[in-house]
Design a protein around this nucleic acid. Structure first.
Length: 729
RNA sequence: AGCGGGUUGGAGUAGUCAGGUUAUCUCGUCGGGCUCAUAACCCGGAGACCGGUGGUUCAAAUCCACCACCCGCUACCA
């Protein structure tokens, strides 16, 4: 029996998920989960919100609320967004039964998680893998006399070597010299620059990573053929530098308490990196306790052991982790070290090989690179992001799943561009796949039929074995890609099946024969259409992990009554069962996307309007003076205003910009102004904005207007007459 | 600055760790076909001295050295 555990790196509950998280983590994990199920394996998927750590306390402070409020809010938002994206967290127990597994999206503020983390802490402590050390840490002293330890990254000061200001951490940006983090001159807190800062001693526990160096090296060398180059390189780098102990506690109030007596430990918490990775393990146990045992798993609360403990029988268990590239060492070094430590505390010896009863180490750490947005990195503070919840409010989940799967940052950074998104969805998802399905459906529905599928009289798969063999080859290669977490390759193989389907139709040309009398040619042609019907079924099954919503739709449109998730990939090209039928007239699976419409929506969002309603974060949003001066704003007089021929909200406005020159600008002012109110106004416009077509009309700039976000819009005008073309600054 | 990664026809991308016959696939483009279908689909063609220079080798996109540019991490984002 095959057991597979899918682990997705825990999203930090400090904000909504964006498309980078989706492409790097959420989507690959869900695809793999659905795929493993479609191979008949027993799959458990675990992840959840990572809810501790300094950044969350800072967000809470900024919002003027408790940290729990912040994590509650984002846990809820993200849970819903993942469900809307079609990720499989919705069913905690596999519909086939609890012994087949399930999925739990938990959270690290869960009391059971906290308890288990404390147990693990004590177990590692008793086994000697944690050591206590005194370190120097910056501490800010508030006006009321209270003190607060500061993480190094929130402290800046002068470099002890070159005296340049703005140095942080343990290395100077200016001269490159290194020093201890607490050696900065005139340190100040970035959070409250006026506070007094001093260095104080503080006790902490450290995980003795060095103890695991040799075993980790062995483990790593065994994984060379499985890991992707980025994982190999990053891990090797850490191992080559030599592993040093890492603090597992820190001075902070938000987190899991240290399970030790003594006043000193009351003010400290478990370091979030040490605790969050344990979520993979605690989540499986919590799943067993809360879901599996209640649904009647034979092992009850011990159900988790099927996915976590090395068995002594023939059971085969694999662990696959999904994360972004910045998370690699936590999953190839730190987490395996913790697991080996737990195993060693039972058997007394550190080893990367697991004996029966041991917790098992990863089979693959599948780290993706980053998804960039229009060439730049996703950034919360710069509001350069497409947030998953807001995407899902406007667009289709499967379209996103398709585009991110076919363009996944598997081996290096990939770019999210709306142009490409529209292009690929329209051409590939809709053009090749959706259109194939629609051809088959509409053609079949045009054949006269008394009852059931009219193709059943023509079905003759034994004459088409070469095509069936070809399709099965595609399925096999998709399977072998999926076994290596190569999603792009797998999806391409499956899309190849739709292409085969299209050429089968092209060759058979059933549209010529549908209304003709019976003949040998007609029978042969409709036999091909019948095969195409079966190909649609096959596609629904194989595309299910990638685009679950439309697969489900197609499955029902085909009239299948069994559960699509119970059909295995290897059985998906079925030629033996009766042809299914659904009398409802077929509907297209997808709607074509309109690039101009999307760009218009997206640019109006990023222009300030409704975009950043998550938080008002004004700090850190400065631009350079030079950047501001790049914007060439000028005055002009509106000489004509016309309705845009193809848009509801746009006017096409001609502006006299001086020097006998006239400029055309599209402006979203319809509904706010009448044409006559605008003509003759002196307005301010951006003169050096790159011209862009808006719904078919070239717009050469942008008229400035104030927008209060609540429907009020007022154009900026000059206070009295001034020459057209005057520079505004 | 240190560390890591990248650079392959117009765009995106596979292949690089274990060197070896015509360098993969998708989009775009060009020509032809089809007209059932969501301006779609099918067939075919053109287009790359694999970032640069040098080296190792019978043989280099692949290994080595140096250089250029891009990105990430280090420094809250996967």
């Amino acid at each position: 029996m095959s057991y597979v555990a899918i682990f997705m790196a825990w999203p930090y509950a400090n904000g909504p998920l964006h498309l980078g998280h989706v492409a790097g983590n959420c989507l690959p994990a869900d695809i793999q989960y659905r795929y493993e199920r479609a191979r008949g394996r027993r799959v458990l998927m675990c992840s959840g919100s990572d809810e501790h750590g300094t950044p969350i306390t800072l967000t809470a402070e900024q919002m003027g609320v408790e940290p729990q409020f912040v994590v509650d809010k984002y846990h809820e938002i993200n849970t819903k967004a993942l469900a809307d994206l079609g990720c499989s967290w919705v069913n905690p127990v596999d519909p086939r039964g609890p012994e087949f597994g399930g999925a739990l999206y938990n959270r690290t503020s869960d009391d059971l998680h906290k308890e288990m983390v404390k147990e693990i802490f004590l177990q590692l402590l008793e086994s000697g893998f944690l050591e206590s050390k005194t370190m120097q840490q910056y501490c800010s002293i508030n006006n009321d006399g209270s003190t607060k330890f500061l993480p190094d990254r929130y402290v800046e000061g002068e470099c002890p070597t070159c005296k340049s200001d703005g140095a942080r951490g343990d290395q100077c940006d200016n001269c490159g010299s290194t020093y201890e983090a607490h050696e900065l001159l005139n340190p100040r807190s970035k959070l409250s620059p006026d506070s007094i800062i001093e260095v104080r001693d503080t006790n902490h526990y450290f995980l003795r990573l060095g103890d695991f160096q040799e075993s980790l090296e062995r483990h790593s060398s065994e994984r060379q053929n499985v890991w992707k180059p980025n994982v190999r390189a990053m891990t090797k780098n850490w191992l080559d530098m030599g592993l040093r102990s890492r603090a597992v506690t820190r001075d902070i109030e938000w987190g899991i308490e240290i399970p030790l007596e003594g006043k000193d430990w009351k003010s400290k918490r478990v370091y979030v990196w040490f605790e969050a990775v344990q979520g993979y393990y605690t989540c499986a146990k919590i799943w067993a306790k809360r879901h599996a045992s209640k649904s009647g798993h034979p092992l009850g609360e011990k159900a988790w052991e099927k996915w976590w403990k090395k068995s002594d029988g023939r059971d085969n268990t694999r662990h696959i982790y999904f994360m972004g590239k910045d998370n690699i060492p936590f999953h190839t070094i730190i987490w395996p070290a913790i697991l080996m430590g737990l195993n060693a505390s039972n058997k007394g010896e550190i080893s990367h090989l697991s004996l029966p009863g041991d917790l098992i180490l990863e089979d693959n750490v599948s780290a993706n690179e980053y998804l960039l947005l229009q060439g730049g990195q996703f950034s919360k503070s710069r509001k350069h992001a497409v947030w998953l919840p807001s995407y899902l409010e406007r667009y289709d989940a499967d379209a996103l799943r398709y585009y991110l799967s076919i363009n996944m940052p598997e081996t290096h950074d990939a770019d999210f561009r709306w142009e490409e998104y529209v292009d690929r969805v329209n051409n590939e998802l809709i053009g090749t796949y959706g259109n194939f399905v629609h051809r088959v459906m509409t053609l079949t529905h045009r054949i006269d039929s008394k009852e059931g599928n009219p193709l059943q009289d023509f079905d003759n798969p034994s004459n088409q074995t070469h095509i069936i063999t070809e399709i099965n080859k595609h399925i096999d290669s998709a399977i072998s890609s999926m076994e290596k977490q190569r999603f792009k390759e797998a999806l391409r193989s499956i899309m190849g099946i739709a292409q085969i389907g299209n050429s089968v139709l092209q060759e058979a040309a059933p549209w010529k024969y549908i209304n003709q009398q019976d003949s040998k040619e007609r029978s042969a042609s409709l036999a091909s259409l019948s095969l195409s019907w079966r190909i649609c079924s096959c596609l629904a099954v194989c595309l299910r992990p990638f685009i679950p919503f439309s697969s489900d739709k197609l499955w029902k449109m085909l009239g299948n009554v069994n559960d699509i998730d119970l059909v295995l990939w290897e059985d998906s090209m079925d030629t033996s069962s009766d042809l299914s039928w659904n009398n409802e007239p077929p509907k297209p699976l997808f709607r074509r996307l309109d690039l101009e419409e999307i760009l218009e929506t997206e640019s109006s969002l990023s222009d300030g309007g409704g975009a950043g309603n998550e938080e008002k974060d004004i700090r850190g949003d400065y631009i350079e003076f030079e950047d501001f001066m790049k914007v060439d704003m000028r005055t002009g007089k509106i000489i004509s205003v016309d309705d845009h021929p193809n848009a509801d909200k746009l006017f096409v406005i001609k502006i006299d910009e001086g020097n006998d020159s006239i400029r055309t600008v599209c402006a979203g002012l319809k509904g706010h102004y009448k044409e006559s109110e605008l003509v003759g106004q002196n307005v301010v416009f951006v003169a050096n904005l790159e011209p862009r077509k808006l719904r078919g009309v070239m717009s050469e700039g942008m008229i400035l207007a104030a927008d209060d976000g609540e429907g009020g819009v007022k154009v900026l005008t000059t206070d009295g007459e001034i020459n057209t073309g005057s520079r505004v600054r």
